[in-house]
Structure formats: C-alpha cells, structure tokens
Deep mutational scan, measured.
Amino acid sequence: MALNTPQITPTKKITVRAIGEELPRGDYQRCPQCDMLFSLPEINSHQSAYCPRCQAKIRDGRDWSLTRLAAMAFTMLLLMPFAWGEPLLHIWLLGIRIDANVMQGIWQMTKQGDAITGSMVFFCVIGAPLILVTSIAYLWFGNRLGMNLRPVLLMLERLKEWVMLDIYLVGIGVASIKVQDYAHIQAGVGLFSFVALVILTTVTLSHLNVEELWERFYPQRPATRRDEKLRVCLGCHFTGYPDQRGRCPRCHIPLRLRRRHSLQKCWAALLASIVLLLPANLLPISIIYLNGGRQEDTILSGIMSLASSNIAVAGIVFIASILVPFTKVIVMFTLLLSIHFKCQQGLRTRILLLRMVTWIGRWSMLDLFVISLTMSLINRDQILAFTMGPAAFYFGAAVILTILAVEWLDSRLLWDAHESGNARFDD
C-alpha cells in the first residue's frame, strides 16, 4: 500500500549564491595573561575582544583620537594649579581661619623630617597626573615632529594605576569627618577644581587605549598563520617573532617567553612588605597634641575612634588600611606557593584573586592621604596640633611594595603550573 505524501511548494523562490571570495581570516594573537594562541577576527570600533580561555580583555573598544586626548590633557593642565594650590577646605580653629590644600599637606610631611613619605604622596597625587598630561601632550606634538614615541607609550600603561586623584578625593571626605570634632569646616574653591580634575582624569584614563596608539604610530604586520613560536610582548602586546637582537619589532624591548626574574622580584617585594606591615600596624601612625597632652593612634585605634562619629567612614578606612593590605599579602603568598608547588586545582579562583588584588591594591594609600591633609588643617603649635607617627613611612612603603609585587608577577606562570593543553579552566 503506497502512502500519498503531499508536496510542499515554497511560496518564495530560494536563491543560492556561491561564495565568490575567501572568507576573511583572523590574525593570530597570544593572550598576555595566559599565553593562549588564538585567531582574533577583525574588530570594529566600539567592540571589545576577550581571550577565549581566561576571559582577559585583549582589545578595548573604547578609543579616543589623539586630538581629543590632547584637549583633555590641556584642560587638566589648566585645572591643576587651582586643584593643588587653592584651598580645598576652610576650618575655623580657636577663632582663626585655616586653609588646607594639597601642596601644603605634602610640605608639612616633608617639613617634619619625613621627606620619603611626603614624596610618596607627591608622586601619586601630583607627579603621576602631571606625567600623564605631559605624556599625552608629548605624543600629540611628537607625532607631528617625527619624534620617538616608544618610551612614552611604554610608560603610559604602567602609569595608570599610580594616578590616585580619586583616592585622594575620598581622603578629603575622611579628613573632614575627623577634623569636624575640633573645628567648623567649609569647602574651599580649590575643592571644585579638584573634583573637576578627578572627573576629567577618570574619563581620560578610561578612554586612553595605549594598544590602539601603538597600532597608529607603529603598525606591524600581524601573524596570519598559526605558529607556536609566536611570542607576545608584555610592553606593547604585539604578537610576532623577535628581531635579530631578540627584541620586539614594535617597542624594541627584549621579547622573552616569560617575564625575567618574575618570581624572585615578586618574592622579594612580598617578604619586604610583610616585614614592614608589622611596625606599620604596631607603631603610632598619627599623633595629636591637645592642650599640651599627647595622644597617639595606631591604624586600628584611629579607626575605632573614627567609628564613634561615623561608622560608615570608619568601615571604608578599615577596608583600605587593614583589610586590603593583608588580603593582598595572603593572596600573593598563596599564588606564589601554588606556582612553586605546581598546583593544578582552583586555577579559576587564583586568576580571579590576582585580578582582584590588581584592582584594589592602590586604595591602601588612602590613610597616607588623610594624614597629609589633616596635617595641613590642624597645626596650632602646642594648643592643638596633628602630626604623623613613625608607622606612616612603614605603611606607605608596604603598600608600594605590594603594588610592585602584583605588577611583577607574570600571570602566565600560573598556567605553566597548571596542566598543559587546557582550553578551559575551572575549579
């Protein structure tokens, strides 16, 4: 018995066209964080690309023209004298008006014999932002004059995390709450300039795509075929072959399989920071003279006294001054041990922890910024005066060393310790 099946006739004509040209192939790229070699397709503007294995951002879609970056830099340069030299806060102490600005706080630190601690604050609040705007201006002028731009481009990517104007702005709020127990506070004209400078700096850093600047100024022929001998440069993120001198053909720094002496430098910085954190938390970090009496505060006791007036601000200072430094030390110690013992479990967790400490590390400088600003506000000789204690130097040095330890660690070593050939990683 035959089955009668109805015929289905399409209502619209289906047209099949042959592909007349070869589909576009992607360029081969190595991930600078996990060293995976993959094919990167062509990316349009405002599109980002991520590593298929570790999800690290390979290409950032946010990109401004150099002219727009230069305009932002010149605007920031105009704001800087007002943000640093004009009063941020006014207080009335014992019937006398006192003005506080950024430069005055750094000068008070240096004047009291601790120039190293003052230079830490100076670099993060004044030096690094000033280098940022002058570097962008150098790129703008240098591109037109045919100057060598490689050193500036190499420095810009590392400079971003040292620009800490946003953290200093939080420190202004913390210092205001600490001082309000002794005097009446009012915002100064410099505060508005400083807030504007923070906003412009944040926007500029978020749109400063150094890798795209490398592509514009020093374009290189990408690798179009897969080759395990391809290496990625950690300076400019170019994937290719080393030249005859073993250097990256684009930025001219040595092109090595792994960062040289990464573990040794990381261990040295980490152990030194552990040693410095002990006096930083045991010795007094601030000293207040009130009517001839002397009151010393460690980091913890200062947080407890701050909690009596504002528990939320005390929580912020606790996280930045105690929780973050010790968390960074514990995480980095764990990561280094996992590399030495070739741990194969929990790779995803370790990668996330490394990215976390990379982002939060700079916030530990908050305590030094609060001390710097408070020193310029309260300084009335023996009637009422505020000065920093010996722990300030140890704390600042420990924070900087932990930042350097994270920067010096080559994250690809975590993958080397893991089993080879993993296309995915999980716990």
Rank of each mutant, 00 (worst) to 15 (best):
M1G: 00
M1I: 02
M1A: 00
P6Q: 08
Q7E: 10
P10S: 13
T11V: 07
K13P: 11
K13Y: 06
T15R: 11
T15L: 14
T15A: 08
V16Y: 12
R17S: 09
E21S: 13
E22C: 08
G26Y: 12
G26Q: 12
D27I: 09
Y28C: 14
Q29D: 08
Q29G: 10
Q29H: 11
R30S: 09
R30P: 05
P32E: 09
P32G: 08
D35K: 00
M36N: 11
M36E: 15
L37W: 08
I43F: 13
S45K: 14
H46V: 13
S48T: 10
Y50S: 08
P52E: 08
R59N: 14
D60E: 10
G61L: 15
W64Q: 15
S65W: 07
L66V: 15
T67E: 05
T67M: 13
T67P: 14
T67W: 15
R68M: 06
L69N: 09
A73V: 09
F74N: 05
L77I: 11
L78T: 09
M80E: 07
A83N: 03
A83H: 03
G85C: 05
L88H: 04
G95C: 03
G95R: 03
R97V: 03
I98E: 04
I98A: 07
G105M: 02
I106Q: 05
Q108R: 03
Q108G: 14
T110M: 02
K111L: 03
K111I: 02
D114E: 13
V121T: 05
F122Q: 05
C124L: 08
A128F: 00
P129R: 00
L130M: 15
I131W: 01
I131M: 02
I131V: 10
L132N: 04
S135G: 09
A137R: 00
L139C: 05
W140I: 15
N143C: 14
R144L: 14
M147F: 05
N148I: 01
P151S: 05
L153T: 14
M155R: 01
L156C: 11
L159W: 01
L159I: 03
K160M: 08
K160S: 08
E161I: 13
D166P: 15
I167C: 07
Y168L: 15
V170D: 03
G171F: 00
G171D: 04
I172Q: 06
I172T: 12
I172N: 06
I177F: 11
K178F: 00
K178D: 03
H184R: 05
I185L: 08
I185S: 05
G188F: 06
F192H: 06
F194Y: 11
V198Y: 15
V198L: 14
L200N: 14
T204F: 05
L205V: 11
L205A: 13
N209S: 07
V210Y: 12
E212T: 14
R216G: 09
Y218V: 04
Q220Y: 13
P222Y: 06
A223N: 09
R225I: 13
D227I: 10
E228Q: 08
V232M: 14
L234R: 06
G235P: 06
C236S: 01
C236P: 00
H237M: 08
H237G: 08
F238I: 04
R245L: 05
R247I: 04
P249L: 06
C251E: 00
H252E: 02
H252F: 02
H252D: 03
I253F: 01
R256K: 10
R256V: 08
L257D: 07
R259F: 07
R259I: 06
L263T: 08
L263K: 14
K265N: 06
C266S: 08
A269S: 08
L271M: 07
L271Y: 03
A272V: 03
I274E: 08
L277R: 02
L282N: 12
L283A: 13
P284I: 10
P284R: 04
P284F: 05
I287H: 05
I288G: 01
L290E: 00
L290T: 04
N291G: 13
E296H: 09
D297H: 04
T298G: 03
S301L: 08
M304W: 08
L306R: 01
A312E: 12
V313D: 07
A314P: 15
I316Y: 07
V317L: 03
I322H: 03
I322V: 12
L323N: 03
P325D: 00
I330Q: 09
V331T: 10
L336R: 00
S338V: 15
H340Q: 07
K342I: 09
R348M: 10
R350D: 13
L352I: 15
L354K: 13
R355G: 12
V357A: 07
I360R: 00
G361E: 05
W363D: 15
W363G: 09
S364P: 00
M365K: 09
M365W: 03
V370I: 07
I371A: 01
M375R: 11
I378V: 14
I383C: 02
I383T: 03
I383M: 06
L384E: 00
L384K: 01
A385W: 03
M388D: 07
G389F: 00
P390T: 07
F393C: 14
A398H: 05
A398G: 06
I400Q: 06
L401E: 06
T402Y: 05
I403W: 01
L404R: 03
V406Q: 10
W408D: 02
L409N: 08
L409D: 01
S411N: 11
R412H: 01
D416L: 12
G421Q: 08
R424T: 14
